[in-house]
Design a binder for these strands. Sequence first.
DNA 1: AATTTAATTTGCGTTATGCAAAATAATAAT
DNA 2: ATTATTATTTTGCATAACGCAAATTAAATT
Lengths: 374, 374
Amino acid sequence: MGVIVSGTINQTAKRLVTLLRSEGAMSRVQIASALNVQPSTITRLVNDLFKKGLLSEAPDPDRQGQRGYPSKLVSLRREGLMSAGVFVDPGTLFTCLVDSHGELLSEETKPIVDRHFEAVMGDAGRMIAGQMNRLGLAADDFIGCGISYPGQHTEMPGKVLRTTYLADWPDIDARKDLEPFFGMPVHQLNDAKAACLAELLFGVCKPIHNFCYVWLSYGIGGAAVIDHSLYLGRDLTSAEFGGLFPKSKPRPSGQDLLDTLTRAGKPTSRLEDIEPDILAGPIVAEWTERAVEQLRWLSLVIMRTFAPDAIVIGGRLPNPILDRICGALSALTDLDEDYVHQPPAFLRAAVDSKPQMGAAALPAYFQTNSALSV
Amino acid sequence: MGVIVSGTINQTAKRLVTLLRSEGAMSRVQIASALNVQPSTITRLVNDLFKKGLLSEAPDPDRQGQRGYPSKLVSLRREGLMSAGVFVDPGTLFTCLVDSHGELLSEETKPIVDRHFEAVMGDAGRMIAGQMNRLGLAADDFIGCGISYPGQHTEMPGKVLRTTYLADWPDIDARKDLEPFFGMPVHQLNDAKAACLAELLFGVCKPIHNFCYVWLSYGIGGAAVIDHSLYLGRDLTSAEFGGLFPKSKPRPSGQDLLDTLTRAGKPTSRLEDIEPDILAGPIVAEWTERAVEQLRWLSLVIMRTFAPDAIVIGGRLPNPILDRICGALSALTDLDEDYVHQPPAFLRAAVDSKPQMGAAALPAYFQTNSALSV
DNA sequence: AATTTAATTTGCGTTATGCAAAATAATAAT
DNA sequence: ATTATTATTTTGCATAACGCAAATTAAATT
């Protein structure tokens, strides 16, 4: 095995990895033209990275009856860029290992009993190490570990992430505070932004260069990807779409849904605990309808600002609700009478049900992402 | 003289030009550390570009009583990257030549009598050529010419710009339709986006990496700069802030102001024609106050989406009104009760009164801009 | 079996750039 | 006055990245 990404990875190599993540298997000439370099450059680069175990190669299965040297399709080797992910729900610890395609290699979930920082991170580190062990892998087969939890970013030295949910957690600086627990490079980002990266690298947004993610969880978060890069904005507060809905009024958030259920005499405290019959019933249906209307307005705001190619709907709201919301938005023929353009594509997030995959996307993103543009 | 930018300009050279535009004069070591390369690389690059006439060098005037080899400050040579600009008002043609610092070398304004495309562009070409002549310069001393006018971009092959104001103008493709008139590379963008680039390269936004421009003209336009690059979005419709205000209702646009004056018995048809006493009177004051309130809301939307470091106010509304609007926004201590962060910096655009400078910024931007990031 | 075709590879030269040592021009210490 | 110290810039050398053109390869077509 052995780790693959050495300290210095050439700029064109980064662009190549980003391209292959985005487009999947490609021939060398296709790569060369996409990256605007000579085929010979790609030959040398690919053969080099192949030797290092980063890439794999296969004959083109669709090729039939064409003249000329048959192209060989190059793609990321699954075991080439593996990463680990840890998501901290206030009550549960979700961990996983994923390969370069975002396929789960293993996962493990555990209730959190001791909520203190050291205890949670100690547990997480042991869970990750245990999974590696069972697969016969070592920490240096991995490019890193991502940590994600609901929380607010603050622009302190080192960009710390703060949570109010978890008892007396300090402001956390990824490198300094977290690496000791995992023995590999650590990256962190809050739940919405991490989930967005998971869609970018592993989910439905692989080929999309500009999109906005609307994250519907207990609160409403969001993220924006511009030119295949996460745009964070001042103090990492870009695309905080929740803030567009006044806090005091009804809004399409999970907390608002739970409050609505409580008012309707069906008190529920966690989104996962909403009963199937209630989920299928009129209270939720009515709430969803209102949410769709509010998100239609939000989509208009997004189109007037970011004007992305797609708006992605995901989060920790129950799946059927997110599916219904996304379906209803996709069915709109126009967003608003004053909006003369086509509505954007509305996409249902593919990997939002496993929030630890968002975390696992972080090292992959931060260590190999590079703008694809010429 | 002779042109300076040869066909191929190295990537680090682009980053250097962008850096010097943004930061002004710098020493070689400062440049090296800003661009994350070795000082020796900068020595060679700078000496090379100096020989080509792109850069100039001067002793550091502030240096006094420090040990060591005295640094020499490198900056863009004024005559090194000149460009031309043409702005087409429905009734007037504004043209100019500017140097690499955005200083006007010459300007010429002329009423449009024949509004047909060929006639207008023919005139513009002759005006530009005449100005060059008078200064003893030739077309190939210039990196290009920018064309700008109010209009809608449409995503047709080649990214055409369409106008409804000007009689039977076709969809225009910069390279194919415009270059014959000017004999140099031509770039085009609508008024708001061009004005934004003028602030980025020549105005108050030189050092700002993320900002949004709110363009208050007859209509309301806008633009967003992310990582020192203009972000255009799907079909070049990003940051079309006007669309956030329903067309049917009062809105902070110049047309709305003119309509307000008409209703108040002071009919005026052009923004330049508003009488000084009316400008200072209660109708305009009241209108401005309402505009400020609406723009406060818009600023909140901008902060929840782009979260830029600054919001820039500019346009063709009368100067005193724009000054008052910008002043009032700057004075806000918070944008909204739910917005817990600091308000952004509100900046008054510096070069919006000369819209042809926006046009002149286009060649400078498109031919040398390069993300500064590492 | 020879020809055509298209992808890939190889050989060669150039450019960009890192690294370390040297040169330079100032101030500070003796 | 001379020497030491300091920071910036330059130079010499080595190497990595990559363009270009020619060669190679493996298929289909003639």
